[in-house]
């Protein structure tokens, strides 16, 4: 059992507040991704959980034990670093077995566990090599194997795939997900890559300026962003926003179109994902500016009443720049945000 609880954790570097009062519970065996742009505090939070950084205030609990005063080695964690941190003076075998040797396990047990994890990560033929003789992808595998061999309660990963090329990253993503799903380890994974986050996570915590804006399943984060930041950050291209003026109870005027929405006393922002638009007889009037055929889809950047607006349409449509389009948003996919609090309004 290794549930992780982060209670009121804040971190201050001099006058810079890196984390504001973070509260987060990560379930046993959950795969949690901390997602955010660089500088949002995600790595700091991970390092606080690992014990490589001390929180200014707050508590960290792992498996029902308060650990924030403990050294990293007493927390039951293992970590995979962005630059792999494979020890250059040791062979792959000794790297993977390093933690086990520190636990003073008998030789044959170390050997067994190293070989098993190496096999799991498909590096069993590299055991005699040194880090200098490995490619980036292979080093990454060694770093993951070294963490897994510890059989930790919690595995912490700090952008482990960001130094790999795109193809390798996709391959490792699937592999890592498979390996971790088969283990009983709780995983926290830091990334700025939303595709990685969406494809791997059980739950995503979207972080922004030292705060967790939303912690939910990937689909929930995608479909029902809790705040404007999440809506604009997740999705490629991200959500479209248009100002909405009240037009009677539950009615909103968006770019001259009246739509059904929540009841609210003040103006809201209307939001819709680019792929949730259909060409129709009535809807938003848009002028196409740029048309990008992407194979399966057409990405059309257009203008709706002076605002930029993107739509993803089926690629058998023929649209040219300058064309007038009438786009109808799918009613169940429309979202509304309060421009003052930037939070979602139901």
């Amino acid at each position: 059992m290794a549930q992780i609880e982060i209670k009121n954790v804040a971190k201050r570097f001099g006058s810079y507040q890196a984390l504001h009062d973070i509260n987060l519970t990560i379930q046993d065996q959950e795969f949690m991704v901390l997602l955010g742009a660089s500088g949002c505090g995600k790595t700091t939070l991970l390092r606080i959980i690992a014990g490589l950084e001390t929180a200014t205030t707050g508590e960290v609990w792992i498996g029902g034990r308060r650990v924030d005063h403990l050294a990293p080695r007493d927390r039951g964690i293992a970590m995979v670093f962005q630059n792999y941190a494979v020890f250059p003076h040791l062979t792959v075998f000794e790297n993977i077995g390093f933690g086990l040797r520190m636990q003073k396990l008998p030789n044959d047990e170390v050997k067994g566990r190293v070989e098993r994890t190496a096999e799991l990560m498909h590096i069993e033929q590299l055991l005699k090599r040194y880090s200098g003789e490995l490619s980036g992808g292979q080093r990454q595998r060694v770093a993951v194997a070294r963490a897994l061999a510890m059989e930790p309660d919690v595995i912490l990963m700090d952008e482990p795939l960001s130094n790999l090329d795109a193809l390798l990253r996709m391959e490792m993503r699937a592999e890592l997900k498979g390996v971790l799903a088969a283990s009983t380890t709780t995983a926290i994974y830091v990334t700025h890559d939303q595709v990685e986050a969406m494809s791997m996570a059980d739950r995503i915590s979207v972080m922004h300026q030292g705060e967790i804006v939303q912690a939910a399943s990937p689909i929930e984060v995608y479909r029902n962003p809790a705040a404007e930041f999440v809506a604009g950050f997740i999705g490629n291209p991200p959500m479209n926003f248009l100002p909405a003026a009240p037009a009677g109870d539950g009615k909103w005027s968006v770019a001259g179109q009246v739509m059904d929405g929540p009841s609210s006393g003040k103006p809201l922002k209307f939001a819709i994902r680019p792929e949730d638009m259909r060409p129709a007889d009535t809807g938003l009037t848009a002028t196409a500016k740029v048309v990008e055929p992407l194979g399966a889809h057409l990405l059309i950047t257009c203008e709706v009443q002076g605002s930029m607006f993107r739509a993803v349409l089926d690629s058998d449509m023929s649209v040219k720049p300058g064309d007038q389009l009438t786009l109808a948003p799918q009613p169940d996919r429309m979202r509304w945000f309060d421009p003052d609090t930037t939070l979602a309004v139901a």
């Binding site: 490589l52 050294a71 990293p72 970590m79 670093f81 070294r146």
Partner: peptide, 12 residues
């Protein structure tokens, strides 16, 4: 990072 990795792997 090398030192930090060692700390997480059981080193003081």
């Amino acid at each position: 990072e090398l030192e930090e990795a060692a700390w997480t792997l059981g080193c003081t």
